[in-house]
Write a protein that binds this DNA or RNA. Sequence first.
DNA 1: GCCAACGTTGGC
DNA 2: GCCAACGTTGGC
Length: 158
Amino acid sequence: MAASKYWLMKTEPTSYSIQHLAAEKKQTTHWDGVRNYQARNYMRDDMKIGDKVLVYHSNAKPPAVAGVATIVRESYPDHTSWDPDNKHYDPKSTAQNPRWFMVDIKLEEIFDEPIPLDDLREIKALKAMELLRKGSRLSVQPVRKPEFNAVVTLAKKR
DNA sequence: GCCAACGTTGGC
DNA sequence: GCCAACGTTGGC
C-alpha cells in the first residue's frame, strides 16, 4: 500500500470512545490492543506523524464516525501484548521480540454530531470506502483523500 | 442474541 | 500446504 495520509480506526465506545480521548492529558493516547496483522502493518509501516485519522465508533447505536485525530507518534511496540494481566495478552510477543505495535494519536476534533454508518452509505464519493465494504472488519484501514474530505464536509454541514 | 464474514490455529 | 474447527468482529 502506498503512503496514505488518511486512515480510519475503529473503537468500541463502551471501552474507549472519542470522549475518553478528549479527557486524556494532552488529549493523546496510545492505540493499543490491535491484534490483526494487516492492521498492525498499517500502523507499523505506513502511519506517519501528521496523518489524519477518522475515529469510528463500532458496536455503537448507531455505529458512526465520531471525529478526527492525528498521528503524533509513529509505531512502537505495544507493551500490553506481553502483559499477562492485559486483556490483549499474546504469549508469543515479548519485549525482546515484539509482535504487536501501536501509534499515538491526538484528538483534533469531535464532530458536533457523529455521522452514522447509514449516512455514509448514501454518499457517492464513499462508494469504494473500505469501511462500507460488505464483511469489512479491519480495525485500522486506509482512507482515500476524497473520502476523508467527504466525511469531514458532511460533518460541517450539520 | 443472531449470524455472516472473516482470520487464526493446528492436525495431518 | 490444506482445510476443518474454532474464535472474533460488528452490523442488525
